[in-house]
Amino acid sequence: MNQLSTPALTQEQMLPSQQPVRLIDESGTAAVGRTYKENYPLPAEQTLLRGYAQLVTGRRINDQASALVRQGRMAVYPSSHGQEACQVAAAMCLADGDWLFPTYRDTVAVMARGVDPVQVMELLRGSWHSGYDPYEHNVATQSTPLATQLLHAVGVAHAAKLKGQDTVVVALCGDGASSEGDFHEALNFAAVFHVPVVFFVQNNEYAISVPLSQQSVAPSLAHKAIGYGMPGERVDGNDLAALLAVLGNAVQRARSGGGPSLVEAHTYRMQSHTNADDASRYRTADEVSAWEPRDPLLRLRTYLLGANLLTEADEGRIAAEAESVAKVLRDGLNADVSVDPQDLFRFVYSEPTPQLLEQAQLLGEELSREGATS
């Protein structure tokens, strides 16, 4: 990590672009004639092709998980249908040694970092643990409370800076999280201590049922960055190319000692908040249908086909790879879990307290009596 001091940013440098950065428009063609505060080049062709494969897999994950909920194999699932580009980009912009701090909706991002699909779903399945080892792939456990993971992300970034490590942290959250006190504390600490973290807000227009207009009257959520002394940027959250460029720029800035930044992706949650939610109670069908042409998967596919970068063989291979992930999810979540009640006590403290030992003994005796009478 470059620990040299960097020049202070001007107000103009901290303010986001007037319009969200877009490199591929809704028709699937390269966007031209737009001016942004930075020069964002179109990512390399192979990077876009690899990202498209991740998008296809992400969409298949969402569809399969929703089906598993209906079959009773998962307790709940917060779909990211329509937001897959944000999650794929968040994973792709990181190096192996970097850290990702996801929310409960970011299963696609977690899997894109290499975490086992079945382990990712353990939390949403209703298991007692979060399913995977955070240190194996440098992915924190998925956070259900809003914005709490942002503070954890800042802590890891601060520790990395103190140790002189070449580590960047990307912390994901939604627009609803920006209304939480933890959001303010995380951004303020990160800016004051100049730590290598990128705050990535997926603005999908709603905090469950509360629209953004009732959460904030700021010009954009990215404009909040200047209040903390860090740069903010806006990006089309359904344009994978723009996401890779903007997030990649923010990650590189953090890695070179430039400190934290805030990126706001403008996207949309196409499905309900979770399977337990009825989105029709707070938004109209016309509003949802207006976002259908902006689908990130179809947009990038159109671009790749137009540029002769995607062949029929490629599509077949990509679809087969996505289906293999869906099969892993089906097989893993259709298998019954062997439950040991004593696990309630084994993993609370590394050295169990006397009270826990007493409770574990009482439970063991009760289970023994039940086993003797059955």
Rank of each mutant, 00 (worst) to 15 (best):
4 L>S: 13
5 S>N: 11
7 P>D: 04
9 L>I: 06
12 E>V: 09
14 M>Y: 02
14 M>A: 03
17 S>N: 07
22 R>P: 02
24 I>C: 06
27 S>V: 12
28 G>L: 06
29 T>C: 12
32 V>K: 15
34 R>L: 14
42 L>Q: 06
45 E>C: 01
48 L>N: 02
49 L>V: 13
51 G>E: 01
67 A>E: 10
72 G>I: 09
73 R>N: 08
73 R>E: 06
77 Y>T: 05
80 S>V: 11
82 G>E: 06
83 Q>G: 07
87 Q>E: 12
106 D>I: 07
106 D>G: 05
107 T>K: 10
108 V>A: 13
112 A>S: 14
117 P>K: 07
118 V>N: 01
119 Q>E: 13
120 V>R: 06
122 E>H: 15
123 L>Y: 14
125 R>Y: 06
128 W>P: 00
130 S>T: 11
133 D>M: 07
133 D>K: 14
138 N>P: 04
140 A>Q: 10
141 T>Q: 11
145 P>A: 12
148 T>A: 15
150 L>A: 01
150 L>Y: 03
154 V>L: 08
158 H>W: 15
160 A>F: 14
160 A>D: 05
161 K>Q: 12
177 A>W: 09
178 S>W: 09
181 G>A: 07
181 G>F: 14
184 H>F: 14
185 E>N: 09
192 V>C: 08
192 V>D: 03
192 V>Q: 09
193 F>C: 00
196 P>G: 06
203 N>Y: 14
205 E>S: 10
208 I>M: 11
209 S>I: 01
212 L>F: 07
213 S>H: 05
220 S>E: 05
221 L>E: 01
223 H>L: 01
224 K>P: 01
238 N>C: 13
239 D>N: 09
241 A>I: 01
242 A>M: 08
243 L>A: 04
249 N>L: 09
250 A>T: 03
253 R>N: 03
256 S>N: 11
263 V>Q: 00
267 T>D: 02
268 Y>F: 15
269 R>T: 05
274 T>A: 09
280 S>W: 11
280 S>V: 07
285 A>K: 15
295 D>V: 14
312 E>W: 02
312 E>P: 01
317 R>E: 10
332 G>Y: 10
333 L>I: 08
338 S>M: 09
339 V>Y: 14
339 V>H: 09
345 F>L: 01
349 Y>R: 05
354 P>R: 06
362 L>Q: 13
369 R>S: 06
369 R>P: 02
